[in-house]
Design a protein around this nucleic acid. Structure first.
Lengths: 370, 370
DNA sequence: TTGAAAGCGCTAACAT
DNA sequence: ATGTTAGCGCTTTCAA
């Protein structure tokens, strides 16, 4: 039994296949006599007819699908974004074609070309760098593109990102209210909007709280990875930098921070408080559970998909970018610095969805070792 | 500048487009005069010609892509499998179309139909259940299908899975050598091959080591989730079941086990040893780091892709299934049971790639509370 | 070895 | 309101 085509349906309904096409397409159904349309409908039903999207795509140059470009699916950040994108698209009959670039521009370009040749109607990029020729090129060609999680340098490409400034501000307020004054920032790569904006917000927070902007308490890491975080903290400790808390540019850097502190015999939070960024899956299972700025990744993906669909439907509409509010999730990796007589509750300031109940660490006059 | 078509290339090379097609297709290139072929090649190069896969697919009913059906991308088990599949496929110019089913047969069926209509050439399923009508149906229709991670009840569908029997055996030997005699198994759902085969292997191991097959020390969980694991252990504890170690059906169940033990004030490994299954990302960051049976998920995916490609190229070949060997990764969640005078090294027995160095827990006569 | 012709299944001008 | 016609870009008989 060959798969029925539109011609088969038309034959059975005794109409021309063009009529059958119109009857079956919701957008053109009104052009055809209701009775005829019904007949076609029933014929299609009876035959189990399913339109062939390949043929349709060849004709229309559309595909009901978009490309989702991510660095690497095995980075736990991205699956929730992908699900958000897919769930929104799926609701309107669209699909997402996922590609991993491993941060390789050549792979990215190849993937985009491959998707383009398959008539994807737009792209969601989670790989944006501040300098990003391919994105510039797509934007110049007016390809529908939405950035998610990170932005590009030219700000006229629509994006959906977390409000890093607010996130950093919440985290810093929390630390300051606990009594910390010497806070290190492990900044992410400055070629990424997330790395840059969090660093800027850190500087702003230092100013807001009248804290020293000591250059030695800032480390720009080469990547958002556990090993880069560990390396950074080892460097700080061996340089004898004085600090009681670390604001990590993301959770993986915080993880590396845990590793390095552990190796040096320093305890968290008794000796050093640590705050992460993202609240990635299972990060609450660390010991101690990590205080972190939660970013709603699923919603980021969902909003990005909505923005892209909007762009597809109303191409002339002015591009928008969306900032989603992060929240601080206070867990047990933050506590008053050693030497503090009373830990002050950081609760209200935290703004997190969970109550802020900093672990009351035994007060011990420990300093990061030289 | 319109995208160049084959006709444009043919015009430039002064040949008919059929000739151009032959020249550009490696498989048919030998049919055409070498010089002519070269001319076509250069024309294509000059124009930046890229074949249109949609048109090709409409004509040939092939697509150079396959469907990858997984339950949920946000389960950390699956991204490595997906990468393994994609990397192998990518090397031969194939793509994978990833769909999430959320374990919903209706979604799965819809997804498969959607992929089929897009001419995918085969499927890798990571969602196999022992009873799986859709898989039976695809197998009956001789659609190229390879199962990964889990198998179906009918064993004639090719699959790539871990050798669970060996994995369980390694884990049980490790526990027994540490001195455990009363070991609980948190079994996964018995409708999944992983749940079933690990349970069977557990029973076998009890027999091999002359341990009591006490029914109260077996809990079949409704799902492979943290909450199911916690529930199971709460049940055991409130029923007063006597045990010193837990073999969890997977890492998430082990995680739930940690939660429940913690809530009851029991410590791991001092009071109860725990072994997981999978060695999923970041599971080594738990406190204590989880001893677990490592399954090579990336390789599972890679092998599945190879098997599928093989099936596409040699459809008549007899179906094979592949078992990949797991290894035991001994970390700090396993130790001699309380009351043991000397912890025996379980090293050689473990068979893991890391040396087995069980944490020497202080010996305290603690029992799971009633 | 190459060209001619047909057609994969569908949609959209255009005509009636 | 429906049918006619043409064609999306490619591959593959068939004929020369």
């Amino acid at each position: 039994m060959r798969k029925p085509t539109l011609q088969d349906v038309a034959d059975r309904a005794q109409v021309h296949r063009a009529t059958a096409s119109r009857a079956l397409n919701p957008a053109t159904r009104s052009l055809v006599n209701a009775e005829t349309a019904d007949r076609v409908e029933r014929a299609a039903q009876a035959l189990g007819y399913r339109p062939n999207p390949i043929a349709r795509s060849l004709k229309t140059a559309r595909s009901a699908s978009i490309g989702l470009v991510i660095p690497d699916l095995t980075n736990p950040l991205f699956p929730p974004i992908a699900r958000g994108v897919e769930d929104v698209l799926g609701a309107v009959g669209y699909n997402a074609w996922i590609v991993n670039t491993d941060n390789d521009p050549a792979r990215e370009a190849a993937a985009v070309e491959s998707m383009r040749s398959r008539n994807v109607e737009g792209y969601v990029f989670a790989t944006a760098r501040l300098e990003h020729p391919l994105l510039e090129q797509l934007a110049a060609a007016e390809s529908p593109v939405v950035l998610v999680n990170r932005r590009a340098g030219r700000s006229d490409i629509p994006s959906v990102t977390a409000d890093d400034a607010t996130g950093v501000s919440l985290a810093m307020r929390h630390l300051v209210e606990l009594g910390h004054r010497r806070i290190v920032h492990l900044a992410g790569p400055q070629g990424l909007s997330t790395g840059l904006s969090r660093l800027r917000a850190f500087r702003q927070a230092l100013a807001d709280h009248d804290l020293d902007n000591a250059p030695e308490r800032l480390v720009v890491c080469r990547s958002f990875t556990e090993s880069a975080g560990a390396e950074a903290v080892h460097g700080l400790l061996s340089a004898g930098v004085d600090f009681t808390a670390v604001l990590a540019g993301n959770d993986l850097l915080a993880l590396g921070c845990y590793d390095a502190l552990g190796e040096q015999g320093l305890r968290c939070p008794e000796d050093v408080s640590v705050v992460g960024f993202n609240d990635m899956p299972f990060i609450d299972k660390l010991s101690p559970p990590l205080t972190t700025v939660r970013i709603p990744h699923y919603e980021l993906g969902a909003e990005a998909a909505r923005l892209l669909l909007e762009g597809l439907n109303e191409p002339q509409r002015h591009p928008r970018s969306i900032l989603l509010p992060p929240t601080l999730v206070v867990r047990r990796s933050t506590a008053p610095p050693a030497g503090t007589t009373t830990g002050r509750q950081g609760g209200r300031a935290a703004g997190g969805r969970r109550a802020a109940t900093p672990h009351q660490a035994p007060v011990r006059p420990v300093r990061p070792a030289v």
